[in-house]
Design a protein around this nucleic acid. Structure first.
Lengths: 350, 350
DNA sequence: TGGTATTTTGACAACGTTGTCAGATGTTGA
DNA sequence: TCAACATCTGACAACGTTGTCAAAATACCA
């Protein structure tokens, strides 16, 4: 025969309102009133209840409370990120946590690892937990799980990348303009052969930055050379390899636009290996810690992940507070940070 | 008159088992059995139920289920970190998430910002949510909130820093040995004046690394000079200022031990400002991204946050599975990564 | 003093689910 | 054909809380 304890179950039940009520010699409802600070409890009873609460070490059971409450709220939201350990994601996370805290809401966070079915699974799990809303960096195109969530009329806010879901808010960085500015910046320093190194072309941000690159070239009257465009560089090895290939091929670029911070880092690694870091211009998309300590200091198009996160969270809570306007795209501007690597002139390179 | 919708409540209730049961023309209990894959439901009924579930878009309500279940589990754990956006914390977070996923458990994460009362508040909130267990980077010394949690016989595992709570597991890096190794390493390169720059002395890790520094000096027969020891450098400005002071004072150090990664970065910034980065030896505690791309490349004592997190999470789930042995201290070794900055000789400096 | 208005309190059902147990149905063997 | 048994199924209570509403206690007024 096995007992509960044998199975490793939590056998010691926390005290309940019932026990508090018994000790204070009042009804459960009175205890409930005291805890929820509802008016109309005499100071005398209230004190007796509080005393009993202290004595028993009672703690309110939020889940049971939420189950009964009429508004169907759980005071939790879900957050689906690429990877909680990625600096961009974790900066978002922090900003969202801060807003959620102000709304007495807890955050369930998960990493999708860019896998649509992980995203899907997480979304369904969170739906089972009845989270009040969702903030998502979307991976999948179909959003099957998310659609089901939407059907319950619960808000979803997309962040960093938009979704095909009609009528959902998205909070995005201005990827296209940012990329275009980066290209034009290097063109202004005299570069005519500017390469593009991008992430998985299926990612919306990668595609937008590529479009910005093309726009930037067009605006400065430069020719687009397909040999200078590399997509799908989703691992550091692929980045290094692509960079080296660019410089061993005939007619190499004199400037590089790196479409994402991990790509920027891979490029720097490769340039150091090639000994070219002082001769090739480089602007990366998305800032990263220590970019200003490298030699040369790395110029980047900076996003503002904290602002993206804060905006997304505020949007979500506005929806939860009843805001019913149609879904919007909110675009947060980017900023070119001039530090040195983007201002290297072509003359440095031969 | 205001309706529910006006108040922004989630008015559309998700379908319940009751509705599924009605549609499939069976009892609620049968629906429950199908969902929980309990044996003894005829294939025919089972199919009818599944059909109804699909038709209504039913999703199991985990919270209601957990409330009723006998084992008192919510399949959630709480995670209290310094700051989810800090790379060390977020690496821990990711490793813990992965283990939790394997146990079909969701993680509530919060940032304490090194404030004891934030930690306290978070702990109480998580207790209200009836999380099954807690993983904590502790801030406070008293652990009032955590103690109450422990009283419910729910496991807590401390990570990175131990707690005064008797009988709780801690998973720690070998701070003292790591620091000692760093000091001895630089001493072996001929340094006799090695400075210590540390974090808030109230933090256990900072204190341990300081002890390791002292031990390292003692083991190499070097004199401890209090003028070379700086504590409480909890902001980048304080670090830069302290570094500059060290080098403007008479008899400056020829080598630096930085007790934490943000401190290391501040030191590098200051050394660059002073133009001393190639002349002063530096070993930092805790690795950071790009340490190997700076010039000189930065030697560090690396911790393994992913392993710390994984170990802590596995410990927690072992407890939840009924493991009843006394609380343990598990120490994860550190590793000296030789990259260049720690191998600069005193001769470079005059 | 009696009657009404007001405040305070508690009994009970309900939230959505699962545990318990008894009843219904079907199967087997003599 | 009937008892004995195994298999399926459902009624009901329970988990810990809050919403509803009526009862009890108190205050107020003529």
């Amino acid at each position: 025969m096995t007992t509960l304890a044998d199975k490793g179950n939590l056998v010691q039940r926390p005290p309940t309102m019932k026990e508090v009520a018994a000790l204070a010699n009042v009804s459960i409802k009175t205890v409930s009133r005291v805890i929820n600070e509802e008016p109309g409890v005499s100071p005398e009873l209230s004190e007796r209840v509080l005393q009993a609460i202290r004595q028993l070490g009672y703690h309110h059971n939020t889940t049971a409370s939420n189950l009964r409450r009429a508004d169907q709220r759980t005071a939790t939201i879900g957050l689906l990120l690429d990877d909680v350990a990625n600096p961009f994601s974790s900066a978002l996370h922090r900003a969202i946590e801060d807003v959620a805290n102000q709304h007495d809401t807890l955050v369930f966070t998960g990493s999708s690892d860019f896998e649509a079915d992980r995203e899907e699974r997480m979304a369904l799990t969170l739906m089972s937990r009845r989270v009040d809303g969702l903030i998502v960096m979307p991976v999948s195109q179909s959003h099957i799980g998310l659609q089901q969530f939407k059907q319950l009329d619960r808000p979803i806010v997309f962040v960093d990348r938009p979704a095909n879901l009609y009528d959902a808010d998205s909070v995005l960085a201005d990827n296209r303009v940012g990329a275009s500015v980066a290209v034009r910046h290097m063109a202004a320093y005299g570069h005519r052969r500017i390469a593009f190194l991008g992430d998985l072309h299926t990612l919306w941000t990668a595609a937008e930055r590529h479009l910005g690159y093309i726009e930037g070239l067009a605006l400065t009257g430069l020719q687009l050379d397909p040999a200078l465009v590399r997509h799908d560089l989703h691992s550091i090895n692929l980045v290094e390899q692509a960079t080296i290939e660019l410089f061993t091929a005939p007619n190499p670029p004199s400037a590089l636009f790196a479409g994402q911070n991990l790509i920027t880092i891979g490029v720097i690694r490769a340039l150091q290996r090639l000994g070219l870091q002082q001769q090739v211009a480089l602007v990366g998309f998305d800032d990263f810690p220590l970019a200003d300590l490298l030699m040369p200091r790395v110029s980047v198009v900076a996003q503002d992940p904290a602002l993206l996160g804060k905006t997304a969270a505020e949007r979500l809570f506005a929806r939860l507070d009843g805001e019913r306007s149609p879904g919007e795209r909110i675009v947060i501007p980017t900023q070119l940070l001039i530090r040195g690597s983007g201002e290297i002139t072509p003359s440095a390179f031969t």
